[in-house]
């Protein structure tokens, strides 16, 4: 027998958390319930976050946007702030799972699952997101890259909850780009993915670039070297191809049921080359 609690506020949540140390937390349940079914083992207590009011908000606060951990993918996708300021995130969300999965799944769940294939993660890396972690008696903010420690592991400590994500508005990037290579066009786990933010001058010279790859390492992969190498070059086939070797050195993919490591490595480089087709057009999701 499993008991399920559904607190209405953080205060209620802390009470339950204290009482049931062994409880598991769920948001949309699209990761957790699949896992529990596979293990055929249910914990004595489950705590659902859907009713916790503090985790629901999406608000703009002095140049930044706060996304509550329980914001569903569907809600984010239809939110004007997200579409306007973070098209790279919107585009990743659009490719995540399927409509019912997006209706149920949350950004907090995607982050805490810490899968290298989590579609929300590469955009959050390039956007320099900070996650807000709360305990009963305090909170802290941690950059996303410090929060995700490995496949399935995060910096969450006992009794800590992810309360939300902070994103600085990044309107200076002229190109927001996300591409996921999956085995099909929907319901596809990333074989490899790329989130990219690029700013070019009027004449197409790269001023700044940020890249993050999914599914090509134990966590999301970034490469300062690749980004630096591109700066000052005209955004085109030649420049992009020139950084492919750097990209391929940065990633450390594995073979699995979906694809080989070699293919993933090639994709990591090639997905960058795709930007040549983007020209100087700002891409809006």
């Amino acid at each position: 027998m499993t008991t399920v609690y559904r607190p209405g506020s953080l205060d209620e949540f802390w009470d339950m958390r204290e009482k049931y140390g062994e409880a598991l937390v769920f948001a949309g349940g699209t990761d957790l319930f699949v896992k529990l079914r596979a293990l055929n083992k249910y914990p004595p207590v489950l705590i659902g976050l859907a009713g916790v009011k503090e985790l629901q908000s999406i608000e703009e606060l002095s140049g930044a946007v706060f996304i509550g951990a329980h914001a569903t993918h569907t809600r984010l996708l239809s939110h004007p702030r997200i579409r306007e300021h973070f098209p790279v995130l919107a585009s990743a969300l659009r490719s995540l799972g399927s409509p019912p999965i997006r209706n149920m799944g949350t950004i907090g769940g995607n982050i805490c699952t810490a899968s290298p294939a989590g579609d929300v993660l590469p955009p959050l890396y390039v956007l320099g997101a900070q996650v807000e972690l709360r305990k009963k008696d305090g909170s802290r903010r941690v950059p996303i890259r410090e929060f995700i420690l490995g496949p399935g592991t995060t910096a969450l400590t006992d009794g800590e909850l992810l309360s939300g994500v902070w994103l600085k508005k990044e309107d200076s990037f002229t190109i927001h780009h996300f591409e996921k290579v999956g085995q099909r066009k929907a319901l596809a786990i990333a074989v490899a993915s790329l989130a990219a933010l690029v700013t070019t001058t009027e004449t197409g010279i790269v001023e700044k670039a940020r890249f993050a790859w999914g599914s090509v390492g134990p966590t999301v992969v970034t490469s300062q070297d690749a980004e630096d190498a591109l700066v000052g070059l005209p955004l085109g086939l030649k420049a992009l191809q020139s950084i492919v070797p750097i990209v391929e050195r940065s990633v450390s993919p594995i073979d699995d049921v979906r694809a080989s490591a070699a293919y993933r490595k090639a994709l990591a480089g090639n997905l960058v080359v795709r930007l040549a087709g983007r020209g100087r057009e700002p891409l809006r999701a």
């Binding site: 349940g29 699209t30 319930f33 699949v34 659902g48 019912p100 209706n103 149920m104 319901l187």
Partner: peptide
Amino acid sequence: GECGACTILVNSESRLACLMVAA
């Protein structure tokens, strides 16, 4: 969650009944 055969509406939005618990 892969097939959608269990899709129902909860508060007018689609949900997968195989990934929801009674509570």
